[in-house]
């Protein structure tokens, strides 16, 4: 099973890394999540999910503040992840906190859409 520090992606225009903070994980994203990042995110997010379950995480924070853009393919990766959490037994569920940057205007609508998709699981902070 992955340790949080092993979970990272470093592409030319996109990067992601994970760190543990107590019983929480922090997934930090930066750059441009377009088609070039899709496969990496599709691989990374299930591993983050597995790690969250392994440590019985109470919460995963996803830091979007340095993410310039996210296309619909990468957005769908988050939808699939959130859907997986929603199918867990209540005792295994964890929350997702999305950290947003008000200057990245796309984030307001995209993260709101994610929150509405699973309002009991997701919160958004700016």
């Amino acid at each position: 099973m992955s340790a949080a520090s092993d979970l990272s992606v470093a592409l030319r225009d996109f990067s992601a890394n994970v760190r543990a903070e107590g019983r929480s994980l922090v997934l930090s994203l930066s750059g441009n999540a377009d088609m070039a990042a899709k496969d990496s995110l599709d691989t990374l997010l299930p591993r983050v999910h597995a790690e969250a379950l392994r440590i019985s995480a109470a919460e995963v924070q996803v830091d979007f503040r340095n993410l310039e853009f996210m296309n619909s393919s990468c957005f769908k990766s988050f939808v699939s992840w959130i859907s997986e959490i929603g199918e867990l037994e209540r005792s295994k569920e964890y929350k997702i906190r999305l950290l947003s940057n008000p200057e990245m205007h796309w984030q307001r609508r995209s993260l709101h859409a994610l929150r509405c998709f699973a309002v009991d699981l997701i919160s958004v902070e700016s």
Binding site: S73, F75, K76
Partner: peptide, 10 residues
Amino acid sequence: SAKRKVGSGL
């Protein structure tokens, strides 16, 4: 889209 394997349709 959550269960789609190919494309997002979004």
